[in-house]
């Protein structure tokens, strides 16, 4: 496997649905140990692109490879051992407990018969995103933010101990959407720690431009299905770009601590 650089790669992806071009000739590579954020306005095609990268949506043109092998050639079970996907929302109709849900993350490894090792991983993943306190509660009784963390723990548990010669892949669709400030930080730090420990690669759809700027190694700006910028916050976070992509005015400033750029949205009409 030519794993070192091309962990996840998309070449010339086009997605057309109902004669609408949702993704327009997108190419994207994600390297080992890289944290990539996908940002853009509503309807830009972020989720569509993410789903194409997971194989949920088949592109009309172009192809996606995982560790150099086309997605279509992967067996579900093999892919699940090295790649985990967090959807935007998970509809659940049955009252599983938090622990049971996180344990499902271990399914690709043990098919339901958890070993001691699996249970340790489940415990570690739960503690990483702070859900241990309500581990025995029924998921349906939790708040939206709590539930989102439970599924994040499940996804982390899934690839927590991927084999040492492969770097696992995390694809996260709006992982912080319903989280409070503290837990946005907890979650993104947990992911960063995981990336550092395992050399994992992450692609996350995010909305908070400043959180993104601080967290991501690279930001992919998507507008009307097209990549309009692709680079670090330092390279891409600019007043003109925010105006182009989001159609809002903003002021760019820098944190005193790290000198990282951040944007202040201008709400005052002149």
């Amino acid at each position: 496997m030519n794993t070192d650089t091309q962990i996840l790669s998309a070449q010339n992806i086009n997605v057309i649905r109902n004669s609408q071009q949702l993704i327009d000739n997108v190419s994207l590579d994600i390297a080992r140990g890289e944290r990539v954020a996908l940002i853009g306005p509503n309807g830009a095609g972020k989720s569509t692109l993410l789903k194409t990268l997971t194989g949920e949506i088949a592109p009309n043109h172009g192809n996606v490879t995982l560790f150099g092998k086309p997605l279509s050639q992967w067996r579900d079970r093999d892919a699940a051992r090295v790649r985990a996907v967090l959807p935007q929302a998970t509809m659940l109709n049955f009252a599983f407990t938090v622990r049971e849900i996180v344990e499902l993350g271990r399914f690709p490894h043990c098919a339901g018969a958890l070993t001691r090792h699996d249970r340790i991983i489940v415990a570690e993943a739960m503690s990483a995103v702070e859900v241990t306190a309500f581990a025995e509660r029924d998921v349906l009784s939790l708040s939206g933010g709590e539930r989102a963390r439970v599924h994040a723990a499940r996804v982390l548990a899934q690839v927590w101990d991927a084999p040492h010669d492969v770097s696992p892949v995390l694809l996260l669709d709006e992982p912080t959407a319903s989280l409070d400030l503290r837990h946005q930080r907890v979650l993104l730090q947990a992911v960063s720690e995981f990336v550092k420990r395992r050399g994992a690669s992450v692609l996350a759809v995010l909305h908070d431009i400043n959180l993104t700027a601080q967290w991501a190694d690279r930001i992919v700006w998507l507008q009307r299905g097209r990549i309009v910028a692709n680079g670090s916050a330092e390279q891409t976070l600019a007043r003109e770009r925010i105006r182009d992509v989001y159609e809002v005015d903003a002021e760019i400033a820098r944190y005193r601590k790290s000198q990282a750029p951040y944007a202040m949205i201008d709400l005052v009409n002149e």
Binding site: T54, G55, E56, D76, R77, D78, A79, A80, R81, R83, A84, V85, P87, T90, M91, L92, N93, F94, F96, I101, L104, G105, F107, P108, Q158
Partner: peptide, 13 residues
Amino acid sequence: ALGEFEAKHLGVD
């Protein structure tokens, strides 16, 4: 129970 794609991503055929 999590959904069809979720099951697929967990390795279920």
